[in-house]
Write a protein that binds this DNA or RNA. Sequence first.
RNA 1: CGAGAUGUAGCGCAGUUGGUAGCGCGCAACGUUCGGGACGUUGAGGCCGCUGGUUCGAAUCCAGUCAUCUCGACCA
Length: 528
Amino acid sequence: MNVFSRFCKEEFCKGFFLFVLLHTFFKLQQHPYQSTNKMAKNFTTREENYSEWYNELVVRADLAETSAVRGCMVIKPYGYAIWENMQHVLDKMFKDTGHQNAYFPLFIPKSFFSKESDHVEGFAKECAVVTHYRLKANPDGNGVCVDPEAKLEEELIVRPTSETIIWNTYKNWIRSYRDLPILVNQWANVVRWEMRTRLFLRTTEFLWQEGHTAHATKEEAEIESRKMLDVYATFAQEYMAMPVIKGIKTPNERFAGAIETFCIEAMMQDGKALQAGTSHFLGQNFAKAFDVTFLNKENKLEYVWASSWGVSTRLMGALIMTHSDDHGLVLPPRLAPIQVAIVPIYKTEEQLAQISDKVQSIKQELEAQGVRVKYDDRDSQKPGWKFTEYEFKGVPIRIAIGPRDMEDGSAEICRRDTLEKKVYSQTEIGELIPKLLEDIQKNLFDRALQHRIDNTISVDNWEDFKIKIEEGKFILSHWDGTTETELKIKEETKATIRAIPLDVKEEAGKCIYTGKPSKYRVIFAKAY
RNA sequence: CGAGAUGUAGCGCAGUUGGUAGCGCGCAACGUUCGGGACGUUGAGGCCGCUGGUUCGAAUCCAGUCAUCUCGACCA
């Protein structure tokens, strides 16, 4: 036999000691986050295949799944709960800035689209069209078919966005400057027949809010669109813990029908950019297209000034791609449906009863402070299973309480962002948790910001530019200001100008591509 | 819409020259377990994407079609 077994036979005690050491070492090697966690072990494709990792995460964290309907998705209860939290916060922010909610029709007559030429051009290629209003039994007796006799005189378009129908309605609402401003928001679903879809990021149907405002002056409309951009940026940074760059879109990337498009751009973990929200200054384009005029204070007829702004369920995708790791979703506490999950560890009914009793008082203490707590005393799953489950779902804090803790009056607390575990006294939990939640919220933001800083560089050389774009960086470079150059760069590198930052510094330089003079740097990146 | 790949159990996959449908995980029951996705025994679960063709016979061959994924074009 080998040296080891002979050693054990001859010196059993020492051998046994060694065995314990080896066993302990082996246990340590089997760190739960590595090898014993089967799911987590298989879930490490983030580096190799980011999109595969993303899709799997969305499904495994129980957020959503692809539907049998082309390019559509089913948002599952847990995913929807996060969206509801987002909605709730945003809705309050809109109301705090003087807006009201309303609702406009899903169907838009085709003719409305022909009124604003840029707008049609932008959306015509991706519209779902309703042509008939009735089905009938198939002549061959199998199922149903579209009744050809029920053809609509004018086709209806399922809204890809509501500017047209809303401006057609505003026409009837506005006569005088006294009717202005109109500050309306709508929570709705829209349909865009995209060629390629991706859960949350680009689905055929998606949920969003769209604000549509009408103003008496250009300045007021401009201020409104800037103000709402700030609202979005605040929401992204303070609630989603996602740092964003506020900027202006180039004419090429501008919303169809807008004079100026403002955006917030975020960097995902693979270095790609994601447009997380937009706000548009529409000038008088839609007012002119729909003939919306008002009498101003000087009794002169004038076209109305407009803005529109929106964020969608795409924010869910942004949230996922900003924070998640190879153990699953990581949610910022302010948006997490469950902020604290408590898992009991027990063998007997008596132990469970004892633990449950203790947990109830902890839970009440936390809930009194507004913390969203879930006590998971299901007997159908074991503790280890629950740990992994809540990790996958991104629950910010997990508390485990077992017999050992009951003896010591302690509890094990694990934070999701760092996966760090610590034992605390049960009496300090009530005070600790709210602080810890804030700490996690802050840490997530700092971490994401650091990631963006680390992956943002200034480049002045075309060869470097091509290399760095491939590496997935945000690149600050000079640009000669022409759409022509922008398109050529896109063609050669797939990089687009994500934004001209609002806080851009004047700096003389030469265009990265043409060498023509430029006044400031813009942000180039590959985008979703 | 272009190029490529894939559709077989809830999920991941195997299925040989065309001959009665398989594995792993999961699921259910029972027992032992319960401090990081436990183990054993038994069991349930299939219009082999859909339509048509070839054949005595098709998951397998052919044609069409639909869907999904990756890469383009498009886009929040």
